[in-house]
C-alpha cells in the first residue's frame, strides 16, 4: 500500500526520483490512481499553494514542487484517462502569439493540474486557431501568458474573440496587471500561479 504522506513529502521537497519510485511502485501494484492523486498530489500542491499565499513560500519552492508533481502525474496520466476520472473543469493555456517564454505558463499549467483541472497546454506562440481548437475540445477557460510588453496586445485580440461566448479569458505574466485586464476587458487576471488556481475556481463556480 502506497504511503501517500511520503509521496506528498517527496513532492514538497522537490525530490523527483523519490516521486518516481513511489508512483512507479503503486502502478506496478495496480493500486487506485485516484488515491495517489487525492491523498498525495492534490494535498501537496494545495499545501505549497497555501504557504505561497501566506508569503511562507516563494516561486522557487513552487517551481521545484510543481516539477516533482509533474514527474509523478506524467506517469499516471494514461491511467487517469482510462479510469474516467471526473475533473473539476477544462482549461486551455498558452503563451500568446509572438512570445516564446513559458516557465511561468508551465507553472500555472501544473498548479491547475495539481488542483484537479483538465489542462490543455498549447505551448508557446499561440494564435487564435490554437485556442479555438482547444475550445472545440471543451475548454471552458482560455488562459493567456505573456512576458513581453510587445506581445501583450495579443491578449486583447483573444479577449475580443471570445467576448459574448461562454468561454472565459484570463491573463497573466510579468508585465500584465489588473488594470491592463480591465482595459482590454478580459474576464480575470492573476499575479501568480497560486492565485490563478483560485481565479479558475471562482470563474467555474458560478
Amino acid at each position: 500500500m502506497t504511503d501517500c504522506n511520503a509521496l506528498k513529502s517527496a513532492i514538497l521537497r522537490g525530490k523527483r526520483a523519490e516521486v518516481k519510485t513511489i508512483v512507479s511502485a503503486a502502478i506496478e501494484a495496480k493500486e487506485d490512481v485516484n488515491m495517489l492523486i487525492d491523498q498525495g498530489m492534490i494535498p501537496a500542491m494545495s499545501e505549497i499553494g497555501e504557504k505561497f499565499s501566506k508569503g511562507e513560500a516563494f516561486v522557487p519552492e513552487l517551481l521545484i514542487a510543481a516539477r516533482a508533481m509533474q514527474t509523478g502525474l506524467g506517469l499516471l496520466e494514461p491511467l487517469i484517462a482510462a479510469s474516467g476520472r471526473q475533473k473539476k473543469g477544462k482549461v486551455a493555456i498558452g503563451t500568446v502569439s509572438g512570445d516564446l517564454h513559458d516557465i511561468g505558463k508551465n507553472l500555472v499549467s501544473i498548479m491547475l493540474k495539481g488542483a484537479d483541472y483538465d489542462v490543455i497546454d498549447l505551448g508557446v506562440n499561440c494564435d487564435l486557431a490554437k485556442f479555438d481548437a482547444a475550445v472545440a475540445q471543451g475548454a471552458q477557460i482560455v488562459a493567456c501568458s505573456s512576458l513581453l510588453t510587445t506581445t501583450m496586445p495579443f491578449m486583447k485580440e483573444v479577449a475580443d474573440h471570445y467576448r459574448g461566448t461562454d468561454v472565459k479569458v484570463i491573463i497573466g505574466g510579468a508585465p500584465v496587471t489588473q488594470e491592463y485586464c480591465d482595459q482590454i476587458g478580459a474576464d480575470g487576471y492573476s499575479s501568480d500561479a497560486n492565485s490563478a488556481v483560485k481565479l479558475v475556481d471562482s470563474l467555474l463556480a458560478c
Binding site: 522557487p60 516539477r67 516564446l100 508551465n106
Partner: peptide
C-alpha cells in the same frame, strides 16, 4: 528557451 532542458536547468539553478 525553446529547449526543455533550459527550464530544467533554470529550476535546478534556483537553489
Amino acid at each position: 528557451n525553446s529547449f526543455p532542458e533550459f527550464t530544467d536547468n533554470f529550476i535546478d539553478a534556483l537553489m
